[in-house]
Simulated scan of single mutants.
Amino acid sequence: MTLSSSQAVDVLRAAGEPSRLRILALLAREELAVLEICRVLDQSQPRVSRHLKLLAEAGLVERFPDGAWVFYRLTGDGAAAALVAEVLGAIDPADSALYRDAERLSAVWAERATDAGEYFARNAARWDEIRSLYVSDADVEAAILAAAGPGPFKRLVDLGSGTGRMLTLLAPHAEAALGLDLSQQMLNLARNRVTEAGLEGCELRHGDIFATRLPGESADLVVVHQVLHYLADPAAAVKEAARIVAPGGKLIIADFAPHRLEFLREQHQHRRLGFAEPEMARWLTGAGLSKVRITALPPTEKNGLTVMIWTAERARERQRQAA
């Protein structure tokens, strides 16, 4: 798809204002809430919202409500997105305004990381109890086992393994298993748990879901269980998880359907209040996976949360060649 000359002018006009260009540069790093953009730019919400409206009308950014918050991200594809990428790529990385914005965004990231680290450290010992307040673990685990299939699996990778429940559930069906988590407290609990379960060949490692450093296409089962709603860039985490999936392997994601329980954001460090089916399907297929299947588990309590299980596969080599 290409742009007409008038469309190109509209795109460049929308991007060709200092604050709007700064916003595009920020959103090239991650999706952000309106108030976070205000904080980095040190501008009022009405002013930032006006800039975002113009960028959205030009097709350069996407707006998506999430409970009481509103997030923005760069438009994922198309000629307009390609043109913006060219413009941003031509800017000097040492540009003073963008460098200052990047430093302020880093401060926002650091604050988020500190808050999250304190939360997980504070609640590590009660983690399974806290989880049980929102979802029937037995139903979710049964659905995950069904989605995974009987195995055996050569290599299982659990990203954001928490207390290690997915490892104790799935590692008995795997020759080797690896759990990654950023919280040392969670890793300590997970180590105790897998040891008590008598699991051999199960490794726990400090690691980042955005940059696992694992070889591409190296695991025939990858699991991301109740992790994405804590993350600033869940799409990037899905892409990294998909990168690890071997030909013929599966990625299983368990998380919440969209909801409006703001107290989870305020008290429990949830950044996103669930994920819509089309959004997740777009991320999975965009990461090179196919055969996306969905299982919805409605809550047993009146004000509970619906848990979604997404399963996607990487085609085998001969299937890729045939396609």
Rank of each mutant, 00 (worst) to 15 (best):
A8S: 13
L12S: 10
A15M: 07
E17F: 13
S19W: 11
L26S: 06
R29Q: 12
E31P: 12
E31V: 01
E31T: 03
L32E: 04
R39Y: 06
L41D: 06
Q43I: 00
S49D: 14
L54Y: 13
E57K: 15
E57W: 09
E62A: 12
F71S: 11
Y72I: 03
T75M: 06
G76L: 04
A82H: 13
A85G: 12
G89V: 04
A90P: 00
I91M: 07
I91H: 07
D92P: 09
D95S: 08
S96D: 15
R100T: 13
A102T: 09
W109N: 10
E111S: 14
R112H: 14
R122W: 07
A124T: 04
A124C: 06
W127L: 08
E129V: 11
I130E: 07
V140M: 01
A146M: 05
A146I: 01
A147T: 05
F153T: 14
F153V: 13
G160D: 10
T168D: 01
A171K: 02
P172V: 11
S183T: 02
Q184C: 04
A190V: 06
R191N: 07
V194Q: 02
E200Y: 07
E200V: 05
R205M: 11
H206T: 03
F210I: 00
D220E: 15
V224C: 08
V227W: 03
H229F: 15
D233W: 08
P234K: 11
A241N: 05
A242Y: 06
R243P: 05
R243G: 02
I244S: 01
I244N: 01
V245S: 03
K250Q: 15
K250F: 06
D255S: 03
A257D: 10
L264D: 10
R265G: 10
G288V: 03
L289W: 09
K291A: 15
R293Q: 15
R293L: 04
I294D: 00
P299D: 09
L305Y: 01
I309A: 03
A315N: 10
E317T: 14
A323Y: 05
